[in-house]
Design a protein around this nucleic acid. Structure first.
Lengths: 256, 256
DNA sequence: ATCTCCAACATGTATAGACATGTTAGGTCA
DNA sequence: TGACCTAACATGTCTATACATGTTGGAGAT
């Protein structure tokens, strides 16, 4: 069968991707520049730029104006579900945290959503960085302001664990609930995470409660999607209510 | 403070995004064409195309060669965690399924990973479509081939529920486990889902087992990330092992 | 040996033009 | 009225050129 020719920019992207995945272009190393690739593939520099754009969106390369494009393939996926400590251990390295914000804020909507008795929260925002300085995540934690959490305002959370701080304050986590979205970063988030505005990242929203159901933490984490995945379970399968079962409704009610 | 001028293509993108979010460019409607926008903003058509590329990557618009670009803002997010049936009900509409593949395949690696006694699986691939025909997800289910699942090979899964079929075959789901990733679609997946290769989608991998631990289904679902999110819990928080707790290791061991 | 400067590299942005391919609407014909 | 055809629209791809901005390495001075 005669295969329709792909556009040149996709052919170039495919060829470079093949070299990256085969290890001929190695992680951390610079790939040939745009002008050089244009000569090599006998295409225009614009076509090369389009191809590199494809590779950049696949997170195979990262371009640095003035310096060149570097291979990023080979980064290991990390499991975030158990929090940063587990991710840290799995990576065999340390991560640094930089506190972006630590103050009291008034959030009535969040209070209503959580069933919190107070609408004042300790707001702790941190960016997580590899030793190299590369950002890998952004955390926005909100803890109801109580006598137990008020001392957090004077803690150094670049070095301290919030989970530990909560525990030591007597706030024993018993129940958590999570939502996972794809989140497209805005300009500020993009700037912090070294992403382009609109880029897709993993957003995990977690609510933690004590055994009585009182919320102790609400956190939204924006995670590098090429570094992290989520893992849940094993969990019991929730039985389907009998009324729904008896109908035996198929997933699709429209015949193809 | 003197603010550095954004590139023209970002200014154009921002202006159009503002119109979309303000409702002046309405969902489903065509936006002005590239030539018209070039005149309107007094920039080149290439600059307009770059701006539209930004909006396309943000899923605010979708372009159709020859026809124009249409606004997509306003699509509702759906929760996938309880499966297609729940998503379907929440949407207040039906979805159609198209079977792409239904056959027996040999998958020793998957068998090893699942602890399955057989390395033969019933492979059922389906694409999920809205009534309009728009694709919203892609499912690849693998069921160990047993006398109970062998009849699946002759079932019409464009209309039938796999979950129901398993239950009616006596395979009672008791335990499930899930992983959530961002997945960048390849050419074939992109073509099926009307996405560009490299686009980020939500990939949910779920393993379901009966109470004895025997696996009955392994499914990978690729979901439109702008339509779906995941929800987990409320679940009990797993206590941290005492040995780790006693060390009191902070999340970050490196002081800023 | 170190510092400074600058040329030569890199990528980013913008423009213009040409051609390919897809879609649509209107005119013509049966 | 419906079918068909085609012109005029749309976007996609490709090329070339020019200029802006960032980085790097080497030469020269101290």
């Amino acid at each position: 069968m005669l295969e329709m020719a792909a556009p040149k920019y996709l052919s170039v992207a495919h060829a470079l991707e093949g070299q990256i995945r085969a290890g001929r272009l190695k992680p951390g190393r610079r790939i040939p520049g745009e002008h050089e690739l244009a000569k090599e593939f006998d295409v225009s520099r614009g076509t090369v730029r389009q191809a590199l754009g494809v590779l950049a969106r696949k997170r195979l390369i990262r371009t640095h104006p003035g310096a060149g494009s570097y291979v990023e393939f080979g980064r290991e996926r990390l499991e975030y579900s158990l929090g940063w400590t587990a991710a840290l251990a799995a990576m065999g390295t340390t991560i640094r945290s930089r506190v972006l914000r630590l103050e009291v804020v008034e959030l009535p909507d969040l209070a209503a959503g959580l069933g919190s008795q107070t609408s004042q929260f300790v707001a702790l925002d941190r960016i997580r960085l590899l030793e190299s300085g590369a950002p890998i995540g952004l955390d926005r934690s909100r803890m109801p302001l109580t006598p137990r959490t008020e001392p957090f305002l004077r803690m150094d959370f670049s070095a301290a664990s919030l989970t530990s701080a909560l525990r030591e304050a007597g706030e024993l986590a018993a129940l958590s609930e999570e939502w996972v979205h794809i989140h497209r970063v805005d300009g500020e988030e993009g700037s912090l995470l070294r992403r382009h505005p609109g880029d897709a990242c993993l957003l995990v929203r977690r609510v933690t409660r004590v055994s009585s159901g009182r919320p102790i933490e609400h956190v939204e984490s924006i995670l590098d999607p090429d570094l992290f995945h989520m893992h849940f379970g094993p969990n019991p399968v929730k039985p389907i209510p009998a009324s729904r079962r008896s109908h035996g409704a198929p997933e699709s009610t429209t015949r193809r």
